[in-house]
């Protein structure tokens, strides 16, 4: 299996509002794929469609060689997902959330979770409601990584993380990818794409354009944003 993600002519609209239009995308196994684009361009809609949160209008999504609708549970078993905003059940402790995320998958992930918590400096004794935005993000990273999935999908993962944690996060991704995983991450931070991604695409106005290389300069990158603002 060469392509871990295969999206063909995906369209999703929200009533009269545009979502994404005719998006086609392939992500190869072992890739760290950067997904760029201004706010409202359709990055999260694409990701949320892949995760099955949204019902698409047309097109198809295949993940790990399986159909995203018919094989939803099997696909989810092999995905580590981190949403742009990390929300958990407030009354639970961090350790309970992490254990719950493993239990629900029917896995014993204690060893990996412990390692991740140590690397990311996660205090597992605190209640979720006591955590800052950044610390919730770190819990979200642990929940997404502890079961060592084949595919990581991260929606703006580094927002709220301090620079040291951002570095630890990308080190972890690189380690997992070196062991055979694949990663798709949406971001606004060009330097992250330049530094860590092996291929990239940019979304604008619901349409996707593949980039020849993730090494694009600031001016070229900002052109996508400026054009969008002018059109708006």
């Amino acid at each position: 299996m060469n392509n871990v993600i295969e999206i063909e002519h995906l369209t999703k609209s929200y009533g009269k509002n545009r979502g994404i239009i005719d998006v086609s995308l392939k992500v190869k196994a072992g890739d760290i794929f950067g997904f760029l684009g201004p706010n409202g361009a359709g990055k999260s809609t694409t990701i949320r469609s892949m995760m099955g949160f949204l019902k698409t209008d047309s097109g198809s999504i295949r993940i790990l060689g399986m159909d995203s609708v018919n094989d939803h549970e099997k696909i989810m078993a092999n995905i580590g997902y981190m949403p742009s905003e990390a929300w958990f059940y407030d009354s639970m402790k961090v350790s309970e959330v992490i254990a719950y995320a493993a239990d629900i998958r029917g896995l014993d992930c204690r060893e990996e979770a412990e390692k991740l918590c140590e690397r990311l400096k996660v205090n597992t004794n605190k209640k979720i409601r006591e955590l800052s935005y950044g610390n919730k993000k770190k819990v979200s990273i642990v929940c997404a990584m502890q079961h060592k999935p084949k595919l990581f999908i991260f929606d703006e993962p580094t927002g709220g993380l301090d620079p040291l944690m951002q570095r630890s996060f990308f080190e972890l991704i690189t380690e997992y990818v070196d062991k055979g995983a694949t990663c798709l991450l949406s971001t606004h931070v060009l330097s992250e794409v330049n530094k860590y991604c092996r291929s990239a695409a940019i979304m604008r106005e619901g349409r996707l354009t593949m980039l020849d290389s993730p090494d694009i300069d600031d001016d070229e990158f900002l052109k996508f944003y400026e054009d969008t603002e002018e059109e708006a």
């Binding site: 995760m51 099955g52 949160f53 939803h72 549970e73 099997k74 696909i75 989810m76 078993a77 995905i79 997902y81 949403p83 905003e85 990390a86 929300w87 958990f88 059940y89 407030d90 995320a101 629900i104 998958r105 979200s140 929940c143």
Partner: peptide, 14 residues
């Protein structure tokens, strides 16, 4: 409402 849906629905449970 409490934004926990994305956490819950990202598990391998239909």
């Amino acid at each position: 409402e409490l934004h926990t849906g994305e956490f819950l629905f990202s598990f391998p449970v239909s």
